[in-house]
Structure formats: structure tokens, C-alpha cells
Design a protein around this nucleic acid. Structure first.
Lengths: 205, 205
DNA sequence: TAGATTGTTAATCGATTAACAATC
DNA sequence: TAGATTGTTAATCGATTAACAATC
């Protein structure tokens, strides 16, 4: 269920003195209906208390377990350009159970340079490193032309989930690999769709 | 309809000698069912030819018009850190109808530096610039703490669609502003959910 | 004509919601 | 007890799909 991470995100911003939370509060904060929140939570086996709500700590722990965020999922990043570097430095991952455990590129000008604490390694080392470091999730931040090939390398290296930022669709025949496409231009196009019928709006407010 | 951009993306990668395309081909390439493709296309008023398929050029032009990609949508970017810089340089926008028309930050160390052809401007100038440059879409690439306030500034400046990369949920009371959340850690968490029940997989293949 | 493929109907499926009994 | 809030049922809604007549 794609909403669980949103609930978790909300819980994590709650002040530490909040001990319980109601489905209605979660709903308000996340833009979901209260009935839907309760349904989602009961579906993943969370127990609230009638008349009281959900215990924040237990709910958070439960959601993290449910999402497989058991502390430390090693993530491998391919592509050390602008976007790759930004992702490697992205603060949002810290404390959410993920750790960038390796960065790869094929550009000799980039290989062996450092990004934060990690040294960029040549892509040819991906396979051997994977066995050792146990990469579970792969991020593709390469140019479009390289994405398909990188996806296949990642799959062959045992990665079972891929997040693709390259502006191209990658297809893997292996059904066991989950691929999520984050095409930034596509996101803009979706937004643009909503602009469609709106008049140009002068600066207001 | 959030699938239109995917169809368009597929059409754009087609070799120039392809004159027609069938719903089945689009379906295969984008991972949607053929019936769904036909339904989507007919819903936006595209006409195919029975027994032949869709004319590529006409379909592409139609989708672009439908998505409001009439050449040049000015996009404003707030936050000139790693992620903001990466976004400003992102190749995927070019040729997809978008143009980063302004970059803003509040850090004096960044203001008036250059990113590509653009000079980073102080956020306090956003409102006046907006009237002049007609920003339609805003991208938030700031730290989480600043995101809500930036969203409000953007809305007040007349921006009607916001893409938020900061790892926090922003809420705008103004229903006329569409906000899309692209939380990178959330994307990973969704992937992680699919890893959940899978055994750790040794490097294969 | 024969083969291909659209556009659309009708059936199905799943997700959402309102509502309320259960219960703290 | 009275007020609050869950968990779940049943109704609703919308999206997906199979299937096929229409038609190139």
C-alpha cells in the first residue's frame, strides 16, 4: 500500500510528547479520508484502541517493520553526475532506514573521486561488490541511453528493486524485479495537465 | 490522466520512419493493457484508424496539446543545493516543453552564483519576478523545514502547480494549487515494501 | 475479400466511503 | 455513564478488462 510511507512520515514529525494519534488526525495531515486510514492500518494488522486512537510508538514501529525498514537497507547508486551526487547527499534517506552503500560510474574522470564518504567505483565492479555488500535496492541516475543496460546489470547482480531516474522506460523480463520510474519531466507533464484549463494567473495575494 | 505522459515518452523514442503505431504496441512498451490505451486515447479525443492504428505525428501533437506542452512552460526552481542544481541541469526537461526560467535561494553564499545560464536570485525577488516572467510551475528543492513556507510564497506569486522534492508534506488551503509530492525516501520505502517478503538474493546470472 | 485494429459496451474488479455497532 | 474513536459492513464509485461489432 503506497500510503503507508506517508503515514509513517507524518508520525515521524509528531512531537515526542504525543502518545496517541487518531485516524482522523492522520487523515487530515496526509490528505486521505479517515475511513481509509483505518482500513489501511487494520489491513496491515495494527491495533488501535476504540475511543482513544493509535499508540504512536507502536504504530511507527509497526509501519517500519511492515515497510521492511529494519534499520539499514543497503542501496546502490549508479551514475555520479549531478543527479547522482545530489541523491548520494540527500538527507531524506538518513533515519528512514536506507544507506547509500555504493556509487558507480563509467567515466574515468569520476571514478575514484569521492562523494561524501564514498568513493565512486567503476561500474565493472558492481557485480563483485554486490555479493559482498548485499545491495537490495538500486538507483539509476545515468543518462537515458545507459539506463536499460544498467538495469540489467543491477538485476544480474541480485538487486530486486530499482528506482529509475533516467528519462526513459526500462523493461526487465525478470518479473521478480520491481522497477519504479521517477521521470522528472513526466512529473512536470502531469502537473502541466492540471494547468491545462486554467487561465494564466497574475501574481496574487 | 497520468498515463498520457508515458505514451508521449514512448512516441518520442520511436524511429522517424514509423508512421503509425497500434494500441497494442503502445501497451507493450508502457506496461498498460491495450484496451486501456485505446480508452485513454479515445477519451482525450484522438482518432485512430481501424485496421491501421494511430498516426504517430498526429498522436504526438495531440498528446502534447492535451498536456499543455505548447512549447515553453516557464518553471521556477526554489533551492539551489545539490538537488536544485541537478534539476536545473536535468536534460530530461529540454524538448519536453519545459524551461527552468528562474532559480532562487536565501543563502548569501549561493545568491548571484550561476547554474548553467541562470543566475541564482534571492528568494525575496520571487514575487516581482513572477509577474514579469509568468512562472506557471514551481519546483521546491529546499530542506524540509523551508518547504511549507516556500509553497505559500509560490502560491502567492501565482504559481498554480508545485512539484515538491523536500521530504515533507506541504498543504495549501488554496484548492486551486495542485501539489505533487516527490519524496525520494518515500519512493524507496515503496520499493522496500515489495522487497518485504523476498528472500535475500545472492548475486546471480 | 481477409486480416488487422479501433472504439465502445457490458461485466468485472478493486478501491473508497459512509455509517454504525462495538468498546475504550 | 457520556464522549470518543475504532474496526468493519454494505453501498458506492470509478477504473480496468474482455470482447466484439464496426470498419479500414
Amino acid at each position: 500500500m503506497a500510503r503507508l510511507p506517508r503515514y509513517l512520515q507524518y508520525l515521524e514529525r509528531l512531537p515526542p510528547d504525543r502518545h496517541t494519534v487518531s485516524s482522523d488526525e492522520i487523515a487530515q495531515a496526509t490528505g486521505v479520508t479517515a475511513a481509509n486510514v483505518r482500513r489501511d492500518l487494520s489491513q496491515v494488522g495494527t491495533a488501535g484502541t476504540r475511543g482513544v486512537g493509535y499508540e504512536v510508538d507502536r504504530l511507527r514501529a509497526h509501519l517500519m517493520r511492515e515497510l521492511g525498514l529494519t534499520g539499514d537497507v543497503p542501496v546502490v547508486l549508479v551514475g555520479a553526475g549531478n543527479l547522482g551526487t545530489a541523491l548520494a547527499n540527500y538527507r531524506g534517506f538518513v533515519g528512514r532506514g536506507f544507506r547509500i552503500a555504493g556509487i558507480y560510474d563509467v567515466d574515468p574522470g569520476k571514478v575514484s573521486r569521492r562523494v561524501g564518504k564514498l568513493e565512486i567505483r567503476h561500474l565493472s565492479r558492481l557485480h563483485e561488490d554486490a555479493a559482498e555488500r548485499g545491495y537490495r535496492i538500486g538507483i539509476i541516475a545515468t543518462p537515458a541511453e545507459a539506463a536499460q543496460q544498467v538495469a540489467e546489470l543491477l538485476a544480474a547482480a541480485g538487486v530486486r528493486s530499482i528506482l529509475n531516474f533516467a528519462p526513459t522506460i526500462v523493461r526487465l523480463s525478470d518479473g521478480a524485479v520491481e522497477v519504479r520510474q521517477v521521470d522528472l519531466a513526466t512529473e512536470l507533464q502531469i502537473l502541466s495537465y492540471y494547468l491545462r484549463s486554467q487561465p494564466v494567473h497574475p501574481a496574487a495575494g
